[in-house]
Design a protein around this nucleic acid. Structure first.
Length: 386
DNA sequence: ATCGGAAGCT
DNA sequence: AGCTTCCGAT
């Protein structure tokens, strides 16, 4: 009863107005009745604080350790958490108990020996159930050597919420890696918000012929639209995207598209690399998708992607027709793509793929090194869920 | 400071 | 399920 009174007068902030511009979309909160509560989860809250510069004196990322953060003012963090949850009696002792419950869930772990220092298991949060963009279809006889095309499809058996949390965490990690801080999280899962994104698209962000918007390189996911499993039909596609469902090759209709479900489970980073490699020819600037119903390749801002100079014809051809390219060149180009993805993830790539100035003939050592690094990371970071 | 069991709450 | 509250042990 006392608590009820306190609830009414605790001055807690309605969740959706908490930190303007930083309110999480609906998915961050569970449905009111069941199961669980509508309340924000603690790890969301922690990420939220970490995301906001104003709380840098209270909680902050640990420099140099991905996902590691230090609670600089434990009682203040507890107070903020208590305010959010309308639990005025909250203190660090209780909050830390809640954090400890995350150990078994592998959301967090403690950094031993460092006071008030915890670390997010971003590996789990980021790389499992990475969204599937790909729709496999039979290779059209004349167009592509690859049988991979692109759309936005929910992996079957993957909860929407988990996937979206994944994207969020990935965004946050990406921001951390690139040294960005603050700013809101530009996610639009509704399909009904045509607002321009507030952040530039990631380097090398080329639009895909997926009909729903852009596909972004690893670490630079941007607003996209989710189609729940089982709802990928032309009508709902149209309703959500406002565009007709068409494959880039002009092959009409979803009936000819096969959902690329990776099953219920995981896309390992290695698989991801493979996918990237397979689809890499779509991502090269200037490589438009012929027959794409959406016309010129565009970024989210609607600006045209740089085109290959017309005298770079041989390069362009090598992009469009991987199957007819010399294997070693194709291999090098794909590895370069992987390297760029890697660099994009780490925010150190200022210029995206730019065939004219650098990339096709970069030294083998370089890309091989990157590929190896990425593979090593995938081995050490990947976790299978329990 | 940190851990984790136990019980309670929503 | 996801905490919150309490507390004894390390």
């Amino acid at each position: 009863m006392l608590e009820q009174v306190e609830r009414m007068h605790c001055g807690c902030v309605p969740c959706s107005y908490w930190l303007p511009g930083l309110a999480f979309p609906d998915w961050a909160y569970k449905a009111e009745s069941s199961p669980g509560s509508r309340q924000i989860q603690l790890w969301h809250f922690i990420l939220e604080l970490l995301q906001n510069e104003d709380f840098g004196h209270v909680i902050a990322w640990q420099q140099g350790e991905y996902g590691e953060f230090v609670i600089k003012d434990p009682e203040e963090v507890a107070r903020l958490w208590g305010r959010r949850k309308c639990k005025p009696q909250m203190n660090y002792d209780k909050l830390s108990r809640a954090l400890r419950y995350y150990y078994n869930k592998r959301i967090l772990h403690k950094t031993k020996g460092k006071r008030f220092t915890y670390k997010f298991n971003f590996s789990k949060m980021i790389f499992i159930n990475y969204p599937v963009w790909d729709v496999r279809r039979p290779a059209p006889p004349l167009l592509m050597g690859s049988n991979v095309c692109c759309s936005v499809v929910m992996p079957s058996g993957v909860q929407r919420e988990l996937l979206q949390s994944t994207i969020l965490a990935q965004r946050l990690l990406s921001d951390q890696l690139t040294g960005r801080r603050g700013g809101h999280i530009p996610m639009d899962f509704t399909g009904s918000n045509p607002k321009k994104p507030s952040v530039n698209p990631g380097p090398g962000a080329a639009s895909f012929p997926c009909g729903l918007g852009s596909c972004y390189p690893l670490g630079h996911e941007r607003p996209f639209h989710l189609i729940p499993p089982g709802e990928l039909d032309a009508a709902s596609f149209m309703a959500q995207s406002g565009r007709p469902f068409s494959s880039p090759s002009g092959v009409a209709g979803p009936s000819e598209w096969q959902l690329c479900t990776t099953g219920q489970t995981l896309i390992s980073l290695e698989e991801r690399i493979q996918t990237l490699a397979q689809r890499a020819h779509y991502q090269l600037p200037g490589v438009s998708c012929s027959g794409c119903a959406d016309g010129p390749v565009q970024t989210m801002e609607g600006s045209k992607m740089p085109s290959l100079p017309t005298d770079a014809k041989s390069q362009g051809e090598s992009c469009r027709a991987p199957s007819t390219t010399r294997p070693e060149m194709e291999s090098e180009r794909l590895s370069l793509e992987v390297e760029n993805q890697f660099l994009n993830l780490h925010g150190s790539l200022k210029n995206p793929l730019n065939p004219s100035e650098s990339s096709f003939f970069r030294s083998k050592h370089m890309w091989h090194h990157s590929l190896t690094s990425l593979q090593n990371i995938s081995k050490t970071w990947l976790l299978k869920p329990a």
